[in-house]
């Protein structure tokens, strides 16, 4: 399969990429290409032009920034998985990056590309939501910071405008906060049938507060708000996870029925919360 013809431009910098985006209708940014190129080969995407940001090294970094870790959008999954600072300060992101696709995919795919693609079955979006991370988006008028809760707007849709570039992901330092990301997929290298991210605060040996992110349980990654409220109100994990399906609308497809996903979310939710509480 060969993509439909397109024009190709190489961006020399983030500013250059934004300028090129402004000049073109229907242009797409190309980073690692591991979501975009398969879609173009199937002709599900037919951009008139690709603007290749793959060489914009200023967007590839992981560094400390106050009580956050700042991750450049072009950082590849492999580097996110292996980075010592991130593994120490926000290990759920490294752990999850190591579960994406397979080694070859992780060598090319980028954190920014994965998030900006907005696939509800991707792993990182639910984690970013549960972490209440911030996403930095740059356009010709300057930069703005979007909370993760406002970033994913629909199936394959995000808050990044047509002439904007996601430049940075800011995740909190977790300290003693417990975490887990539990993913089930039927085949090696597959997308999650369902996955659950849990970030929990503990007080006196019990759960004080939990943030729960859900992968592939609707058109966007979701927070399990009802279950989170139950935990904040003192419910046991066993009781709280029964509320995870509330407000979700999981798809039925070759991997699982919607009903099975509803059930699976409670099972994986329990495992994730128990692991997070113990970690």
């Amino acid at each position: 399969m060969i993509p439909a013809a397109f024009d190709y431009e190489v961006a020399e910098s983030a500013e250059h990429a934004i300028a090129l985006l402004g000049e073109r209708e229907d242009a797409k940014l190309l980073a690692g290409g591991h979501s975009l190129l398969p879609a173009m080969k199937l002709r599900l995407a037919r951009p008139s032009a690709l603007i290749d940001i793959g060489r914009v090294s200023e967007l590839s970094y992981i560094r400390e920034d106050g009580d956050h870790i700042a991750i450049g959008a072009l950082t590849r999954h492999r580097e996110v998985r292996d980075n010592a600072l991130l593994r120490a300060q926000c290990p759920i992101v490294s752990h999850t990056a190591g579960l994406i696709g397979d080694p070859q995919v992780r060598h090319r795919g980028t954190i920014g590309g994965s998030l900006a693609h907005g696939d509800p079955a991707s792993d990182l979006p639910a984690v970013i939501l549960a972490l209440e991370a911030e996403l930095v988006v740059r356009g010709s008028g300057g930069e703005r910071t979007v909370p993760a809760s406002e970033f994913f707007t629909g199936v394959f849709q995000t808050a990044v405008g047509p002439a904007e570039l996601l430049t940075e992901i800011r995740v909190p330092k977790l300290g003693s906060t417990g975490w887990s990301y539990v993913k089930m997929s039927r085949r090696a290298q597959d997308w999650a049938t369902v996955a659950v991210a849990a970030v929990v605060e503990r007080s006196n040996g019990s759960l004080g507060k939990a943030a729960i992110g859900l992968t592939n349980m609707g058109g966007t990654p979701l927070r399990a708000t009802a279950a989170e409220e139950a935990i904040a109100g003192g419910s046991s994990i066993e009781d709280a996870v029964k509320l995870i399906p509330q407000g979700t609308d999981p798809p039925s497809d070759h991997a699982a029925s919607s009903d099975f996903r509803l059930h699976l979310s409670t099972v994986l939710g329990r495992r994730a919360l128990e692991e997070a509480a113990a970690r």
């Binding site: 290409g33 398969p38 793959g54 492999r78 397979d102």
Partner: peptide
């Protein structure tokens, strides 16, 4: 980009060459 038969090394790292453009 599922089966990996087209894997080559790019700067020493394994990459599926059906999911990378020649220009990249």
């Amino acid at each position: 980009s599922s089966c990996g038969s087209c894997t080559v090394l790019v700067n020493g790292e394994s990459v599926k060459s059906c999911t990378m453009l020649g220009v990249q």
